Simulated assay, not measured.
Amino acid sequence: MDSMTLYHERLWPAPWLFFAVALVIPASLLVFLPINDTAGIVVAAVLYLGCVTLLLVASPTVRVTDTELIAGKARIPVALVGEATAHRGEDARQERGPGLDARAWLLIRGWVDPVVRIPIEDAADPAPYWLVSTRHPDTIAAALREAKTSANKTA
């Protein structure tokens, strides 16, 4: 049986990050232009494109299906998660910083401010909760509630 996707999000880099990465262009030009103009331009272009490619390829996916939560390479059955809570602004900063439990499992991206905190209800799991960056924390929390509700009805 295929599971139905209730929520899907790719944590793409923010646009400002591509401008920040562009700083490799003048840096590589500064190093290579004194050696050879063509080599400097080629190296600058290759380095920038390589950095952009890495940013795009390394962007994790967050997905909620009717049976599991997938965050990056980690997955957990929805039956083992508690009531997710959405955090934005100062509340999200508190969750990522001073209020963070060192045992928590993290999927955090600096360019995505909101987070969702998902308690883990598996006694064998050393992580008390997952903290996941997302642009739509309320939507993920709602999708997890829906998945748990449908899982309880079928059980």
Rank of each mutant, 00 (worst) to 15 (best):
D138M: 12
V31F: 07
L54K: 05
V78S: 02
Q94H: 03
L131P: 05
H87W: 13
G72S: 02
D91W: 02
T67N: 09
A44Y: 08
R117K: 14
I41V: 15
P77L: 06
T38R: 06
S59Y: 05
T154A: 15
A86L: 03
L69R: 04
V64D: 05
H87G: 12
R135Y: 13
A84F: 03
V42F: 05
E90K: 13
A102F: 12
T149N: 15
K148M: 12
L100T: 09
P126I: 11
V62C: 00
V112C: 15
L56D: 02
Y129N: 08
K73G: 05
E90N: 11
A92D: 01
A155S: 15
F32Y: 04
P77Q: 10
D101N: 14
G110P: 02
A102Y: 11
F32R: 10
V43Q: 01
V52S: 10
S3Y: 00
V132R: 00
I108R: 05
M1Q: 12
G72R: 01
I25S: 09
A143I: 00
T139E: 15
P137F: 06
G110A: 06
P77N: 12
V115T: 03
G40F: 07
V62R: 02
A142N: 10
R135W: 12
L56V: 15
T149R: 15
V24Q: 00
S28N: 00
G89I: 00
Y7D: 05
Y129R: 03
A124C: 04
K148L: 07
W16N: 10
I41T: 13
W111F: 12
R75C: 00
A45H: 08
D37E: 14
A102T: 12
A39Y: 10
F18A: 08
A45Q: 09
E121I: 02
V78K: 06
L55W: 13
R93F: 14
L55V: 06
A127E: 04
A71S: 08
K153E: 14
E90D: 14
V115I: 01
R63H: 03
A123D: 15
V21I: 09
I76K: 11
A22L: 13
P98T: 14
A14I: 00
A147G: 12
I70A: 04
H136Y: 07
G97P: 08
D91R: 01
A143H: 00
R75V: 02
P126W: 12
A147D: 13
R96C: 10
A45N: 11
R63W: 01
V31R: 09
Y7N: 00
A84P: 03
L100Q: 10
D113G: 11
V112I: 15
A20D: 03
